[in-house]
Write a protein that binds this DNA or RNA. Sequence first.
DNA 1: TCAAAAGTGTTATCCTTACACCCATGT
DNA 2: ACATGGGTGTAAGGATAACACTTTTGA
Lengths: 315, 315
Amino acid sequence: MTEPEPTVSAPLVGLAAAILAATLDEPRVLTVPVAGQPDGRGEGLPAGPLEPAHPTLERGLRAWVERQTGQSLGYVEQLYTFGDRNRRRGGQGEGGLHALSVAYLALVREARPAADATWQSWYRYFPYEDRRAGRPPALDALTDRLEAWAGAATDPEQGRRRSDRIGLTFGAAGSGWNEERVLERYELLFEAGLVPEAGASDHIAGQAMAFDHRRMLATALGRLRGKIKYRPVVFELMPPAFTLGQLQRVVEALSGVLLHKQNFRRLVAQQGLVEETEAVTAETGGRPARLMRFRREVLLERPVPGLRLPSGRPG
Amino acid sequence: MTEPEPTVSAPLVGLAAAILAATLDEPRVLTVPVAGQPDGRGEGLPAGPLEPAHPTLERGLRAWVERQTGQSLGYVEQLYTFGDRNRRRGGQGEGGLHALSVAYLALVREARPAADATWQSWYRYFPYEDRRAGRPPALDALTDRLEAWAGAATDPEQGRRRSDRIGLTFGAAGSGWNEERVLERYELLFEAGLVPEAGASDHIAGQAMAFDHRRMLATALGRLRGKIKYRPVVFELMPPAFTLGQLQRVVEALSGVLLHKQNFRRLVAQQGLVEETEAVTAETGGRPARLMRFRREVLLERPVPGLRLPSGRPG
DNA sequence: TCAAAAGTGTTATCCTTACACCCATGT
DNA sequence: ACATGGGTGTAAGGATAACACTTTTGA
């Protein structure tokens, strides 16, 4: 009785992947060109329809990504299933849901582009998310536009709610910046009509993407920024051996904020996440650094092994 | 080029909801009878296929739930999209993925069953998850069976990995019990063939459900148990006014572990999650307790307002 | 008077934060 | 010599955990 019975028109199911890496202190995402898109939206995530031959969703995703980019995936995690708000049956009017996309997050070590896929910095699509060099200047323009949108609300109550959301997600008031709220910030910009995906000709909020791929990417970044704190996923992005300084710069690149050096090192060390190798490297510019490696055993020892970000430091 | 094009046979998309409540110190889930299922698997979650008329996934879900149970939903959150491992095209052989289910978590305040839907305790389906009365006796039998399964591995390396997983998820060794790992525990039991959903005639691991609904329920419980720690979602399950003792018992019911009274009260108070009302209630058996209410303002004030569970107390 | 639950206060301990400082290399 | 990044020590502050204890009702 609750068994899904065949309906006349099943929706299309798409698979999409936000494939993330970090090389040379820059967080990256693998993108592909997308034809037939509005101006400025010709970039997208590797994606394709779920096919009858796919044994599972994840296997289908891996197949598509390999076909489109040549990249084989290691760590893969399902993010969210989107009912695309832009694609409805028969144009407008009574249209129901036409297409779904199951979005995935993938973390890979090496950044070797293939075919016409290219690696881009995350912050090309979300420039305001990078606070490593201090509060980005673009932010002021953005929050001004957002406040104008809040002021243009139909009633004062709605305006207050909008202002609250702006303060909460963009860290006005006392609450401070929360680097995990990437999706909430993008959604707010979308609702305020400040991104091309919402019909704006604007691009002060960063480079647009095809379909709702930028929403998927925002979801992926927020998830990863949260997850590094309680799971040792950063190491999926690191080479087998690395210095603590490199690790810190990768974490900073992902989270978009700078960290306090001494405390970061102590946290990493005392949590047993890494162990020393015998090797050192001299390519860092100052005193040669010891190379470390990830201790896989922590997965068995500690219940919640993550890189709790230690406070932060003024940019 | 990455645009999903129509394929000959799109998969069916189902919607399912784990609707959770907490009444009288017992955590509950709304279930419906499911016809045509194997013996002992006639219970399921409210569910139905996504229909062309549904404007969004969530609206489709709400429609199905209201139709099947009369329950209208408040807080709703998407959980996961499952490619049902039991339903493949054409039986066995080359079969690809035939049906998807997008599963949701819903939290409701009132527990008034309607139609042939009934409220059941979570722990009917996961008896080993309730540690409020100490370590459940059923657990020993379960871990014995699991260890036997680990011992029956094809090679020693696989056996070691299985043993590690058992220790990690069921909290042997030093690691202790982690109440959030509901899904990992269920998946382990599934792989070990100890649940009817995996073909076993056994039910020492709790009451089975139709399709993969128990997997969805496990996902929901794990998510909720994690989420109460960093979001004030418990209050979705509470009446408008409640005593701190009631709140504690609900949190204990959800998490399945007992908490330290004094510290719980202090934590709740000093986090500003609740405020006093003028009323008191005398129905608690001892000294009358002050009725409290949830302070909605914390959502604007604090970045991560949740009920960090204070340690716990020996059961 | 006693049981049961509400509610308050205090202390030891640990973790986080912040600051100060030394070490080894290249220019 | 000094700039740069690597690496260590330690003290202050705050939060948690554990303990003891008082208050107010009903039976």
